[in-house]
């Protein structure tokens, strides 16, 4: 009896084994896809990823799970995806500022050229100060940085975050350094600004749109090249009005997209192409983008690479010239 049962069990397991093997060779996608967001839940990248994931999953006929793996300024999660098996079931959603500067930060030798990328949205930076701050215009703040080099504090979401780039633009305009205070994310940096712990916050406009409208913080300028109307009567001025020489840096902001390491078959990539094109036209996604003041700038794989050639150059050399990194972007073939 015992023997019969044992044999039966082995047969059962073997059968299941074959069945499982057969299933994985089926057409892509046949199981849940994991979309890694290398930041905490609730942030800009996370929200964009979730909105995209839902619509893309609909088109692909599967569920796309968002997995948050915060840590190390987004590089930890990105490296996890880079090292995972390239089977189309592990995708990355990331901001391109942190992503394209990973090689010059020394995290990896691979650049954006080693990935297939679909760019979805653009969100500009904006410079805000606490409600009771002495600075009322962007000129006030720039003068203060010039007069107290290294004393004016900027609260950002960390090294290589969108806010860090915004602060570097301020440094380039002022020609004098600021004091960089890093927080564990956009939300804590914003709380610190509300509490008056830092002098200004150069994160993304989307993160504090509502607080600007309600008057809880003062917005001095946006690093977009045009003025932005947040609500009737509430217009955020472009920095170009005061400092036209900033032209070479703006529009500065976070560009977010979906990424997969190169190595997938063209047939499967085309399925993702279709899903992406469907998602960026999805009404729920567009509503979400409007709510957060993102611009939807969908780019396919070829366009994204082309866009990133100039974007990566701008981002990498801004950091390199500011002395924030020591690895020359030219080492990775990123030219000015």
């Amino acid at each position: 009896m015992k023997k019969t049962l044992a044999i039966f069990v082995v047969l059962l397991l073997a059968l299941g084994f074959c069945f499982a093997q057969g299933a994985t060779e089926d057409t892509y996608p046949n199981k849940t896809i994991n979309l890694t967001v290398p930041y905490g839940a609730g942030g800009t990248t996370d929200l964009t990823a979730r909105a995209l994931a839902n619509a893309m999953g609909e088109k692909l006929g599967t569920t796309i799970n968002v997995v948050n793996t915060p840590g190390a300024g987004g590089s930890a999660g990105s490296l996890n995806v880079q090292n995972a098996k390239v089977d189309g079931y592990t995708m990355l959603a990331n901001g391109m500022l942190a992503f394209t500067t990973m090689p010059i930060n020394g995290y990896t030798d691979k650049t954006y050229r080693d990935w297939d990328i679909w760019i979805a949205t653009f969100a500009p930076n904006a410079i805000i100060v606490p409600k009771n701050s002495p600075y009322n215009t962007i000129e006030d703040l720039i003068h203060a940085i010039q007069q107290n080099p290294g004393k004016i504090t900027a609260g950002t979401a960390g090294i290589g975050s969108g806010g860090h780039f915004g602060a570097e633009v301020m440094k380039a305009i002022a020609g004098a350094p600021y004091k960089h205070i890093t927080y564990a994310g956009g939300a804590p940096a914003l709380t610190a600004t509300l509490a008056g712990e830092v002098d200004f916050c150069p994160q993304l406009l989307a993160e504090y749109k509502d607080l600007i409208i309600s008057g809880d913080v003062k917005c001095l300028a946006t690093l977009s090249d045009t003025d932005i109307e947040l609500a009737p009567g509430v217009v955020v001025k472009s920095i170009l009005h005061s400092y036209p020489e900033a032209k070479k840096f703006v529009p500065m902001g976070e560009v977010t997209g979906i990424l997969i390491p190169k190595g997938m078959s063209e047939a499967n990539l085309e399925k993702i192409d279709a899903a992406f094109n469907y998602a960026v036209k999805d009404q729920a996604f567009l509503d979400f983008a409007a709510l957060k003041s993102f611009s939807v700038i969908p780019k396919d794989r070829a366009e994204s690479q082309k866009f990133l050639d100039s974007f990566a150059s701008k981002a990498c050399y801004l950091m390199y010239d500011a002395g924030a990194v020591t690895i020359d972007p030219a080492k990775f073939g990123i030219t000015r």
């Binding site: 839940a41 996370d46 929200l47 979730r50 509502d210 409208i213 309600s214 709510l291």
Partner: peptide, 15 residues
């Protein structure tokens, strides 16, 4: 939860 609120079209915050 905040992310979920936003997904469903609510804008928690001062407004």
């Amino acid at each position: 939860l905040l992310a979920a609120f936003l997904m469903h079209g609510y804008r928690p915050g001062p407004l």
